[in-house]
């Protein structure tokens, strides 16, 4: 065994974590508050839909997924005070009115014949956007100072990927003809259009910006 008294670096050679990150405490809290808001709206809707869906396998999966999003909401609720937001309700808000309109459209389908729309809104639009925003946050935050948020993001992302696959397979099993294809595509396009207006689950900048500064902006 190596000499226990021999000095070693605090960061092992394979540990490449760095201090800088894209988000300060305030911005992290803002994002986390939006995450909590969307996770709450999602688990409430999935729970509410269980009774309205006649397909037994879908009913049971919605019940299972409902809890996962509630647990994510709980993770974010616990993180907020650690980010200096003691009144967690203050930041548990949607990023903008456009996002409220998006969530209204997602939760609008109600009848027993609308299982396809229910699933498409959640699993082909909302959850992919959540995965995108959580991944952006995970890849851009400080890997040392914001490690607790990263841990929660990883837990949430694990669930999101599993549920995305579950939901997509249920959708594929429900689409049996051209009319179904059109129904799914129409609802997806409507919801996608609304979330684009909102800028994503955390508003504009949910997944950063791909705009390259113009020469004038660089010199200004």
């Amino acid at each position: 065994m190596a000499d226990p008294k021999k000095p070693r670096p605090a960061f092992a050679p394979w540990d490449r974590r760095e201090l800088p990150g894209a988000f300060d405490v305030e911005e992290t809290a803002r994002r986390v508050g939006h995450y909590k808001w969307v996770e709450m709206r999602l688990f409430e809707a999935l729970g509410g839909w269980v009774a309205t869906v006649p397909e037994l396998d879908v009913k049971l999966r919605l019940g299972t997924h409902c809890y996962k999003h509630a647990w994510h909401a709980e993770l974010w609720n616990k993180r907020l005070p650690e980010l200096r937001e003691m009144n967690t309700e203050r930041l548990t808000v949607p990023p903008n009115d456009e996002f409220v309109a998006f969530m209204d459209a997602i939760t609008e389908p109600e009848g027993p014949g609308q299982t396809l729309e229910k699933l498409v809104g959640v699993y082909r639009v909302l959850i992919p956007h959540k995965i995108a925003a959580y991944t952006y946050h995970l890849n851009n935050t400080s890997t040392i100072t914001d490690a607790p948020t990263m841990r929660s993001l990883r837990f949430a992302l694990g669930d999101e990927f599993d549920d995305w696959r579950d939901g997509e397979m249920l959708i594929q099993s429900l689409i049996v003809n051209e009319e179904d294809v059109q129904r799914a595509a129409t609802h997806q396009a409507r919801c996608e259009g609304l979330i684009v207006k909102a800028g994503g689950i955390a508003g504009p900048g949910s997944i950063g910006s791909v705009d390259v500064p113009t020469p004038q902006e660089v010199t200004a």
Binding site: V50, K59, L60, C66, A73
Partner: peptide
């Protein structure tokens, strides 16, 4: 309360397993 809703979501998962 928020925590009551979380309990109900947990119960959803439990009841879904009981169905299975």
């Amino acid at each position: 309360p928020f925590a009551l809703k979380l309990d109900m979501a947990r119960q959803c998962w439990d009841e879904a397993r009981h169905c299975e």
